[in-house]
């Protein structure tokens, strides 16, 4: 799967995260989180693992985390990748 357009998913509400992706020649993850000091590394790991599981090797990902649990991070990344690729099923 490839990132062919800019897309976003999620929200800035508590327990959620807002994810934006756009095409890029490299894979870049720009993470902001209200718990970055304590969980930043773990959050980055969950995001990267989900991106790889979806078969994505490049794209610029900007994540604004408002305390999302792992399942929510995974879901938002999955949705944004599908919306940015050919699988947009809205």
């Amino acid at each position: 799967m490839t990132i062919i357009r800019q897309a976003s998913a999620g929200s800035l509400e508590s327990s959620d995260c807002f994810v934006m992706v756009r095409p890029d020649k490299d894979l870049k993850i720009d993470l902001e989180s209200i718990v970055i000091n304590r969980y930043g590394q773990k959050i980055r790991q969950v995001i990267l693992q989900t991106i790889k599981e979806m078969g994505i090797n490049n794209g610029y990902f900007k994540i604004q985390d408002k305390g999302a649990l792992d399942y929510c991070l995974r879901a938002r990344v999955r949705t944004v990748i599908k919306r940015a690729g050919e699988e947009d099923d809205r």
Partner: peptide, 19 residues
């Protein structure tokens, strides 16, 4: 909302598998 059905499906599936 109609344009959030896809996101809700992904969120619910992950929640059911991990909560």
């Amino acid at each position: 909302a109609a344009d959030e059905k896809d996101a809700a499906r992904d969120l619910l599936k992950e929640a059911l598998n991990h909560l």
